[in-house]
Design a protein around this nucleic acid. Structure first.
Lengths: 224, 224
DNA sequence: GCCACTTATCGTCAACCCGACGACAACAAC
DNA sequence: GTTGTTGTCGTCGGGTTGACGATAAGTGGC
């Protein structure tokens, strides 16, 4: 099969976390043209002997320094319009990563100038990254309804209130604490009680939970 | 940016329809190695000046002869494992297409040997196409719940019973005609009455409907 | 015309789920 | 103890669900 057009293939990451009651995305400042000085999603070329999820894992480790497996990672969509990179034909596979609130940037990584940027303050991005970001965020919002994905924003053990704050941050809407508690503890396989409680700063201690084995929520938590 | 690995990029299509009460997929028989004689999903290389959806549209027109825009087309996922094509490094973007029941293959197209194959009878497929097919089908099943996508399997005007048979075929489960009628006609923007009725062969004539403007269903139709 | 038979559509009912909200429990600070 | 804060359990009316009975509007046989 000769004569097929040659493409470069990259993996770009939309890494989200919950900070200060809102969603934040991991961005890097570009040092080179095109779009020098602009903010962009972290990412890079897929290597010759690498599968796509491997490349995404590697980029994530390089950008965040996190041990692989601690963050949720899933493919979102692929973009390949001619001209989306002015230098050459590039096809980009976008991945969505959800992480607990973590200190960043980690020293000694590729992108020393990586930063968490609140979603609302993300200015114009390089390439078509604004679209990648928007579509990844919408995917995350939708998946919170019918999967236990929100636990990916939490540490291994967490309280119902922490989980609720995740939902409120992602959906941008206040939720009733009582009804949320009922639904979340009632969904089979969503949460597993750890047995311990938190020592908190003023207020009744809360039960700790771990993520349960369910992969989908019945019934789902609807945005309304 | 020199030295990046060169990839070939293809678009593969999972074209589904409802036939004889079950899902069927459009497959072509491969004429060349590798996998000569095996069934495979239709698809082909993305051209040098083409966007990905354009390439999918073009391949669909070549395989089915349908005028563009009559079938629903959406991206599902991208596959790029090294070795998935033994000849060279290929990244494949899978698209899901939903079509009404149509006569195929259309004479004068690329793949004269394209056939509708019932899902259960699809034997071993070339490359990793079994996985592409399975993931696309699961996407279709899930989207029927909360989008008006089922109408893509129907002609422009259809009855509630036709729509119900689509759901039953895709989900592989019988549905109560009365409850289905209530829910489907109650969901805002799902169906628009045409005013006419069908002249049917034994039985009360049914009202005809057109697809409504809604892009999501409230409330959704759950599989249970 | 009358009678089965088929298919479409409307109604009824109990069980369940939802959102709004009241009540209480268990801690800290003073 | 009192106050304030946070977590957890209950209650209530309205809407939705699935199971299923009843009726409407055609066809074909006689």
């Amino acid at each position: 099969m000769p004569g097929f057009p040659a493409f470069a293939v990259t993996v770009d990451l939309v890494v989200l976390t919950v900070r200060d009651g809102g969603l934040a995305v991991l961005l890097v400042e570009r040092g080179e043209e095109p779009f020098a000085g602009r903010w962009a999603l972290p990412g890079g070329f897929v290597r010759a002997d690498e599968d796509l999820p491997e490349a995404a894992d590697r980029e994530l480790a390089e950008e965040t320094g996190l041990p692989a497996g601690t963050v949720h990672l899933e493919q979102v969509a692929t973009y390949g319009a001619p001209g989306r990179d002015p230098r050459q034909r590039v096809v980009t596979v976008a991945y969505l990563a959800l992480a607990p609130d973590l200190p960043l940037p980690v020293a000694g990584t590729d992108a020393a100038d990586a930063r968490w940027v609140p979603l609302a303050e993300a200015g114009p991005l390089a390439f078509d990254h604004a679209r990648l970001l928007a579509e990844a965020v919408e995917r995350a919002r939708a998946k919170l309804e019918y999967t236990p994905l929100a636990t990916a924003f939490c540490p291994p053990e967490f309280t119902v209130a922490q989980l609720r704050r995740v939902y409120e941050a992602v959906w941008g809407r206040a939720l009733d604490a009582r009804n949320f508690h009922r639904k979340v503890t009632g969904a089979a396989g969503f949460l597993e009680p750890v047995g311990a409680t938190t020592a908190r700063d003023g207020g009744r201690p809360a039960q700790l939970f771990r993520r349960g084995p369910a992969t989908s929520l019945h019934p789902p938590l609807l945005r309304g």
